[in-house]
């Protein structure tokens, strides 16, 4: 049992969801300097877009189809991006302008989170009502328990591997590389970097800082929405599904240092692997030492929360702040 291939594939899907979410959370943090507690609920909204796609495109009748992804990825990107933009424009920007402290803004995002979850619940009830009253037997099966359902049966497979295990990492790589190219190779990207790094100077150069910030929020929300599409393929659809992930997402961003998108993505991936492989191998090692079966699955959160605590105590600026050249040369890996 050196490497469990299936576990690796399952973990890829899960970890890339965390990577996407940690990266986009980092983006909102860089722009607004406030940790957004509603971020994982953004992903939950994205997941509900998949439900709507499965319903409206009749995929619940036809079974697994690529249509799930073709339709729900752009839809989630736009809808969740819009939600994030609204949060920025209606709540965070006006509050920041009034000089509310960061603590106040954090509490405001918690307030937004419970409002969003409440609204999601109401919408879920509403959708359920529609499904239940439908004469279509298959549609009535779509959501069988209050406000929850399982959509992973509708995703296609590639050579026997569920699409999310491949699509998830692919989307993460594409969005990280895409972001890098966007920031370094396009005019707007350059303007964006300028606006984030030195807003005052950017303003004097004629860059519309407000527009740049708004677009950043939109993109961050959109990425969270895409993460939600993959997320719903690995877990149960439920209005509070974001709350199950928020701790891990924060852990990813903190490990990445909250300062760089690339390291945010890496941090999220690492936490995903820590929660699955870290727990798995700790069990094997402890099992070999004690001679008994060791089960630590219920302490999963201790691993990610522990990562936050250790990281903040040891290197508050995250992995990004470590001098990798020095570490590598110390380890004799580089001269």
């Amino acid at each position: 049992m050196v490497l469990n291939v299936q576990l690796f594939l399952d973990t890829m899907a899960y970890a890339s969801v965390l990577g996407l979410l940690s990266m986009s959370l980092t983006l909102t943090y860089i722009v607004s300097r406030v940790p957004n507690f509603a971020h994982a609920t953004f992903a939950a909204i994205g997941s509900y877009m998949v439900l709507i796609v499965v319903w409206l495109l009749g995929i619940y009748k036809t079974g697994p189809s690529w249509g799930v992804y073709y339709a729900s990825l752009p839809l989630s990107f736009i809808v969740v991006g819009a939600v994030a933009l609204l949060q920025y424009l209606i709540v965070l920007r006006p509050l920041a302008k009034k000089g509310i402290s960061i603590d106040g803004l954090m509490i405001a995002t918690l307030g937004i989170d419970i409002i969003l979850v409440g609204l999601l619940n109401i919408s879920a009830d509403f959708l359920e009502e529609i499904f239940q009253q439908s004469p279509d037997k298959d549609l009535r099966k779509l959501v069988t328990y209050p406000r929850s359902g399982y959509l992973s049966s509708y995703e296609p497979t590639i050579m026997g591997v569920t699409a999310s295990s491949i699509l998830g990492p692919l989307l993460l790589v594409v969005s990280t590389v895409g972001f890098y190219l966007f920031l370094t190779r396009t005019k707007f990207g350059t303007a964006m970097r300028a606006a984030i790094e030195n807003p005052q100077l950017a303003e004097t150069l004629g860059i519309n800082v407000n527009l740049v910030y708004s677009i950043s929020w939109f993109i961050a929300g959109g990425l969270a929405g895409i993460a939600g599409v993959i997320m719903v393929m690995t877990t149960k659809l439920n209005p509070t599904m974001g709350w199950l992930l928020i701790v891990s997402v924060f852990a990813g961003s903190i490990v990445g240092g909250l300062g760089s998108l690339f390291w945010g993505a890496v941090g999220g991936l690492l936490i995903g692997f820590l929660e699955q492989f870290g727990v798995y191998y700790t069990q094997i090692i402890l099992g070999a030492l004690t001679g008994e079966t060791v089960s630590l699955g219920n302490y999963r959160q201790v691993f990610s929360l522990g990562a936050i605590v250790v990281m903040l105590l040891v290197a508050p600026q995250g992995l990004a702040s470590l001098n990798w050249g020095k570490i590598l040369s110390r380890l004799g890996l580089r001269r």
Binding site: V91, P94, L95, K98, G99, I100, G104, I107, A108, L110, G111, I112, D113, I114, I115, V117, G118, L119, N121, I122, D125, F126
Partner: peptide
Amino acid sequence: PFDPVWLYQIGLGLVIILMLYMRP
């Protein structure tokens, strides 16, 4: 038109945000 259990949660969120906005 919806289950009133959500009123309290949504209301609490709104109260906090409005309070921050109008009387921080």
